[in-house]
Simulated assay, not measured.
Amino acid sequence: MAKPRKRLDKATYEAELFRLQAEMVKVQEWVRATGARVVVVFEGRDAAGKGGAIKRITQYLNPRVVRIAALPTPSEQQKGQWYFQRYVEHLPGKGEMVLFDRSWYNRAGVERVLGFCTPEEHSRFLHQCPIFERLLVEDGIILRKYWFSVSDEEQQRRFVGRIDDPMRRWKLSTTDLQSITHWEDYSRAKDDMMVHTDIPEAPWYVVEGDVKKEARLNMMAHLLSTIPYTEIEHPDITVPERPASSGYRRPPRELTTYVPDHVASLTSD
């Protein structure tokens, strides 16, 4: 029997996270300098850790280069469009990277399980999705797809934790809670999705998500290993000397409205 692996300590986690985040900054600069287009799809069950991973990836990145696409429920007009149309609008342009916090795979999961699409629409999606993704890759987009896997016990624990935490209670929705009673339905839907859309041009990568910190590091390290980025050299920057005053005088403070000194109430005796 294999010996259980030692759990990651906080200091090691934070040091490795910061190192990977520094590499993500290099990826950002490479994308901007070379005009590359990158799409990263984050999928998985509710509370699997997708949002936490995205948050750590983007922490030090420029939102003008690296965008997060988290689309709301489609409008009535969008429901009448080609299914992929509203996602195409969010694809990256030259020198951009887009992280999809859920994606067109909604149709393969929640829409199928909860009856938000017809069997015909679901079947059409499974047929068209590989074609759609091949077109993206053929056009030069770097496409990566990650499925965050979480056990039913861990998902249940996270849901309960959100109920008891006023700062995270907003993350729970009726749809989230339905995922508990439809666990096996979601499992079957995911298996069917993988069979049809795990293609050589755009394979699925499964992230073991029961331990959030390890999942983040594993996913980030893998993503970095699959992008052919190089470090971009930047010209040396010199902060100029501040010129001597030319006589400017600041207006009296009482002419401007300042925010109240809230901190003073925290530090007063």
Rank of each mutant, 00 (worst) to 15 (best):
M1N: 11
R7Y: 11
D9S: 12
T12M: 05
T12K: 06
Y13V: 05
Y13S: 08
E16G: 12
F18D: 15
R19L: 08
R19H: 11
R19I: 04
L20G: 11
A22P: 15
Q28C: 07
A33K: 12
A33R: 09
A36T: 07
R37M: 01
V38S: 06
F42P: 08
E43S: 01
E43Y: 07
R45M: 02
D46G: 04
K55A: 14
R56A: 11
Y60G: 11
L61H: 06
N62S: 12
V65R: 12
I68R: 08
I68S: 06
K79W: 06
W82A: 01
Y83A: 00
Y83I: 00
V88G: 05
E89N: 05
E89I: 01
L91H: 08
G93M: 03
G93F: 10
G93N: 04
G95K: 06
E96T: 03
M97D: 04
M97K: 07
L99G: 04
L99V: 08
F100R: 02
D101F: 04
W104I: 00
N106S: 05
N106H: 11
R107Y: 13
V110T: 07
R112Y: 03
V113I: 01
G115S: 09
G115Q: 03
F116H: 04
T118S: 07
T118H: 03
E121V: 02
E121S: 00
L126A: 01
L126W: 08
C129N: 11
P130G: 02
E133D: 02
E133M: 04
R134P: 00
V137A: 11
V137C: 08
D139Q: 12
D139C: 10
G140T: 03
L143A: 07
F148T: 07
V150S: 01
V150G: 02
S151V: 09
S151I: 09
E153M: 09
E154W: 00
Q156M: 14
R157Q: 11
V160W: 03
V160P: 07
V160T: 14
G161W: 01
D164N: 15
R168I: 03
W170S: 10
S173R: 06
S179A: 09
I180N: 10
T181N: 13
H182R: 13
H182K: 13
W183V: 04
W183P: 05
E184Q: 14
Y186R: 01
A189W: 07
M193R: 07
H196D: 11
T197Q: 02
T197V: 00
T197K: 01
D198Y: 09
D198T: 08
P200S: 03
E201S: 07
A202Q: 03
W204N: 02
Y205S: 14
E208V: 05
E208W: 01
K213D: 15
E214W: 10
E214Y: 11
R216Y: 08
L217P: 10
N218F: 13
M219K: 13
L223Y: 00
L223E: 06
L223A: 06
S225P: 01
S225K: 00
T230Q: 14
E231I: 02
E233K: 13
E233D: 14
H234P: 13
P235H: 10
T238D: 13
P240C: 06
P240E: 10
E241A: 14
R242Y: 14
P243N: 06
A244G: 15
S245V: 03
S245R: 09
S246F: 15
G247C: 04
R249S: 08
T257V: 15
T257F: 12
Y258A: 14
V259R: 15
V259T: 15
V263S: 14
L266T: 05
T267H: 12
S268N: 14
